[in-house]
Every structure is written in structure tokens, then in C-alpha cells.
Design a protein around this nucleic acid. Sequence first.
DNA 1: AGCGTTGCAGCAAGCGCTTTCTATATACGG
DNA 2: CCGTATATAGAAAGCGCTTGCTGCAACGCT
Lengths: 349, 349
Amino acid sequence: MTVTLADVAARAQVSPATVSRVLNGNYPVAASTRERVLKAVDELDYVLNGPASALAAATSDLVGILVNDIADPFFGIMASAIQAEIGGPGGRAGGERLAVVCNTGGSPERELTYLTLLQRQRAAAVVLTGGAIEDAAHQAAMDAKVRKLGEAGTRVVLCGRPPAPDTGAIALTFDNRGGGQELTEHLIGLGHRRLGYIAGPEERTTTRHRLEGHRAALAAHGIEEDPRWTVHGRYDRRSGYEATLELLRRDPSLTAVVAANDSVALGACAALRDSGLRIPEDVSVAGFDDLPFSIDAVPSLTTVRLPLAEAGARAGRIAMGREEAPPGGIASVRGELMVRGSSGVPRAS
Amino acid sequence: MTVTLADVAARAQVSPATVSRVLNGNYPVAASTRERVLKAVDELDYVLNGPASALAAATSDLVGILVNDIADPFFGIMASAIQAEIGGPGGRAGGERLAVVCNTGGSPERELTYLTLLQRQRAAAVVLTGGAIEDAAHQAAMDAKVRKLGEAGTRVVLCGRPPAPDTGAIALTFDNRGGGQELTEHLIGLGHRRLGYIAGPEERTTTRHRLEGHRAALAAHGIEEDPRWTVHGRYDRRSGYEATLELLRRDPSLTAVVAANDSVALGACAALRDSGLRIPEDVSVAGFDDLPFSIDAVPSLTTVRLPLAEAGARAGRIAMGREEAPPGGIASVRGELMVRGSSGVPRAS
DNA sequence: AGCGTTGCAGCAAGCGCTTTCTATATACGG
DNA sequence: CCGTATATAGAAAGCGCTTGCTGCAACGCT
């Protein structure tokens, strides 16, 4: 059998209670006793039984991080920052926590199931990252779950996700609308009047907000949008490639393509190049997020930098109760326009 | 208080044992009874207590995935594939498992601590991804942990990691040596004789194997390597940029730069461009891994494709006992040379 | 009719830990 | 010196679930 607390206690000639207290360090134990116990633990190579401990203490040291797509650096970067703050091992003092990231793959059911699993494990905290799915039923279900988690003592933090009112969850949202607007205004400022837009999946808050910002900019400058100028797709390169081809087919006179994110923008660049168009001389391209590879594109990508790591770190700290929640439980995180080589003045038409 | 099994039992007018059996579906229960129980579960919105269940059953539904850097798509892609197979929720039938990915950040201590945490949680399986750290003490500690996990019933699978003999762990290793050799041979075949090499961090198996492959190719063609041609760095773009500048400083006559991975190669491309050199006319560049963005580089990157997703999926299946382990518990996964625009014949010297 | 099967359900004993309460020993003030 | 704080250790009662075993009908066989 595996070594138990009792074995350690026997070896150290103390009661199990004392061993538990030494291990948790939440009760005075004489230095000499502590040493004896620690020695026994070491000698027996004892490893605490997590489930038993969680059961008895009615809390666990698990912290969940939900992401839509773990293969996407957008989420990878946030998850990494969150996890670093959760402490995981290697973090600083305090109870060691197992920060785990769960990949929902963008599926509503998975999202919910993971939340249940986390609830089942009596997670200490949960951080939900990325845009939410805009489906009334699903949102209601999510809100209910979140509320229940909160009631059970699990701290819930939303990072890069719109607030969920009345659920008690702290929200750190990205100002996707503002960023989208700023980006398109930059393009308009350069002289563009015919701008294609490659949006993300339809029922996502991120998609909608970025698109709204784009449209707000157009509206602010009296540019009437042609419905043909918007195409929806996934948040990946492939989708950007195809959507760009489609855009070009619909209206070859476009002088700029705004993409839902950097990966999509890269796909757009590839499609433009393959169509014999130069960037930015013939068509300007803009992305969103400013992921690490964006600067390496040729020409480098004009985009909106989102402070992914910073926001993640903050979310992690809040989840651990090491930083105060923002007033009202909601904070909006702004992006920063990064003007680079992929955007320029439009070609003479 | 939260709802417990007993509450459900009371409501369904059966014993707790019966409820447990309905939930686990591992014991015959009359259909009518089952329905009554399920109804009660639903009405009370009951969620199983994970720790209690794990304690009583002496196993948990946790599966750990250890990665070196979650923000790196190399790991993200593998993790994603593994997780998809583990089932997480959304997967197919069978007990639902919580697949969690743990980010070691490449730190030996974290790696060990996470393993302990997973052991503490009585994880059902653990998948270790990526290169191992070459430090005798650390390796011994890891091996001991892995062995212990195995003894405790946790299935351990190594994915893209060298085998750990006598630990009982199944290993799916990447043929980094072979891939590295093939890549360099391609360059030599094009006529290159002065090749710079940007290696990864010193004490990593992946770094060493790729470098060994490179050197084997040089040796096979009677090319004597100048020690100045090798620079070590991290596995990121920045490091590739700096290393390339250093390489150029040491020997401007180099006609090719082989990078430890694609990110590094991208950095190398940037450095070359910034130095006024054309790719591949002046200097050829090659990467490793074939991450999604590699094809988007301009020119697109010659590299060695590693079947990250496939290997991950297989590792996941093995971890779940849904696929047989390879004979001897070890399988080598080969990479595939992808010749693209970044490599060409060397310039006339 | 008698009796071994079979199919379902319940009993109850833990799983290994935490924690409240109690006990003992030492220290302190008067 | 004694009564009472003050440390420190132990006893024991669970935490909520699983599961081996027992119980009891209904069933089929000879």
C-alpha cells in the first residue's frame, strides 16, 4: 500500500493530527516535533492524499483555467500568465495550487462540462478566458453555473470576456470595440474608403465587438458599408485566406482588409500575395491582438496590441485573492494601436 | 449545505449505494429505479463530490499533461490533441475525465512539483511532453517519480520525449536526430558548405539530438565544422534574432543558417533581413517543427514537419488505454522534410 | 413442492485526512 | 505554592462516497 498519514505518525511517534498540522502549518507545533515529523515524511517518501485532504477540508487546491483553443497563442499566452500567478508550483509561498488549463475547443457543452467537473473537484478558483458564446440558453446556463460556483466558495474571474452581471464573477474585459474602432480609423485616416472585414465566428462576443468598432469608425466618417465587405469565418489562418479570396471576388476594388485577429490577417496576406497583390501598396492589411509572430510577417502587421500577459497575470492574482477586484467587479482593458508596415495609403483607384 | 448523495437517495427513496451505482453505471440497477434516481439528481441539481469519490474509489478522473511552455504552439498543438483524446468532456462515452495541462515553464523544480501534485491527486494518467532536461540528478528524481506514479496505478506516457528506461512509462519520441540530419543534408545537397547552427538551450535532449543530426550530416559529407558556427540560445524568436547577428559577426561568409526550431528560424530571417541579406539568395534558412505560421513566412520556411497532433492523439489514446502501447513501450516518430522557399543554392562566394 | 439461481437493493465498513474538543504539561501572577 | 492562563499533543468524529457482502424476492428446474 501507499504510505498514509498514520504511517508517518507512527514513525514520528506522534498522532496523525500532529502530522497533519505540521504539513498544513496552521497550528502551533513544537519545533522539535515538527522536525521529527518532517524527517519521517522524508524517510517514508510520503505524499499527501489530495482527495482525502480535499474531502476533509472541504476545499481543494485546484484552480481551473478555461480556454477556447489551447493551440492558439492568444490563449496560450494568457494561460501562461495566469498560471504563473496562480503560483502553481514554483510560485511563491502559500499553499501550493494545481493550476490546470482546460481546453473547451470553443464548444458550449464542453465549457459547461468543464465547469461542472471543476465544481465537482471543489476548485478553489476558476478563470474563464476569451470571448463568450452568444446564445441565450447557453449563457443562462453558464451564468447559473458561475453563480453556483461562487456560492460554493470558488472564486470566478473572467479574463478577456464580457462581464456576467449578477453572477458575482470579477471581469477583466478587453475593449475590443474601442480597439476595432481605432484600427479602422487609422486606415480611414490613411485614405481608405473601401474596407473589407473578415470577422470571426458569428455568435461570439469578441467577433461582434470588434466588428461593431469597425462599423462605428466607418459610420463616424460617413462611409457607408457595403454588405459584401464583411465575411465571417473562424479565427484561424485558413479562414483568413479563404475569406480574402472571397472578398476579392466580391469587390476587387477594396483597398484594405481588416481581419478579426492576427492569424486571420496572416491568411489574408497570403491570399493577397497569391493573388498578385502587394501589401500595402495594393491592399493594406490589419490584424488584432499583436501576437508575437505578427511582427515577423512581411511586411510586419499593423494591429491592436492586447496586453494578454498583463491581463492574465492580473486575473490570476485576483483569482488568488492577492489583488483587489476592480471597483464594481469590472475593469476594461484597452488595446494599443500598433501601426506597422502592412498598412499604407491606398493605391490610386 | 450542498446536496449530497444521501439527499438524492432520500428523495428517490433508495439507498445511497443505489444512487452511487446509477451514477457510475457499473452495477445492475432496475430501469425504473434508475429513472427515479436520475430524476432526483436532476431536481436537486446534484453534483458529485469529486474528492470524496476519488477517496473512496482510490482513483480520480484527473489526467495531467505537462508542457514546457504553454504559450508555444509546439506544446499547444500537442496538448490540444492529447486532450481531445483524453476525452475531457465532449469526448466519447466512458467516465468523464478532467484533462488538465500544467505549464512547467521549463523549470525542473516545477516539473517535479507538478508530478507530485498529480500524484497527490491520484491522477489516472500523466502525459509528459517535450524534451527532457539533461541533468543527472534531476533525471534520476524524475525517473523515480515516474516509477512511483506507475506503481500507484497512474499510466505515464512520454510524448516527444526520450524514453525513460525502467520506469514503465510508454515513450513516443520524435526522431530529432534523423530530422536534423535530413534537413542539413538537404542544405548540403544544395551546395552549402558553411552552415551556421542556432541551437536551443544547452541541457535539453531536443537541443542535443537536433544538433547531433546536423553534425552527423556534416560529418557524412566531410565538412569540418567550425566551432564558431554554433550558437546556443532559447527556443524563441528573439534568441534566433540575436544568435543570427552573432553568427554573422563571427563569420559573414556563412551561406545557410539552421535553427533549432521555427520560431528561432523566424528570428533568424528577421535578423538577416535587417542586415540587408536576402533569403535564400544570400543566406538560406531552415527551421524545425513546421508550426502553422512557418508557411506564412516570406519566403516560407524550409523545415522538418513533426506530426505533433498525431503523436499527441496517439499519446492520449495510449494514456487512456484505448490504444496498445508500441512494442517495447517505445516508438520513434519520424519527421518529414518540408522544402520551401527559404532554402536555395548558396550564393557564389 | 423443494431448492438452487438470478436480479436488485441495502447495510455498513471503510478510504485518508482535518479539526473540534479535550488532556496534559509548563509557565506565570499573586 | 496554588490557581489559572498558555502552549502543545491526542482522541475521535466525521467529510461524502464506493463496494463487498448480505438479504430477499421471483424464477426455473427436477
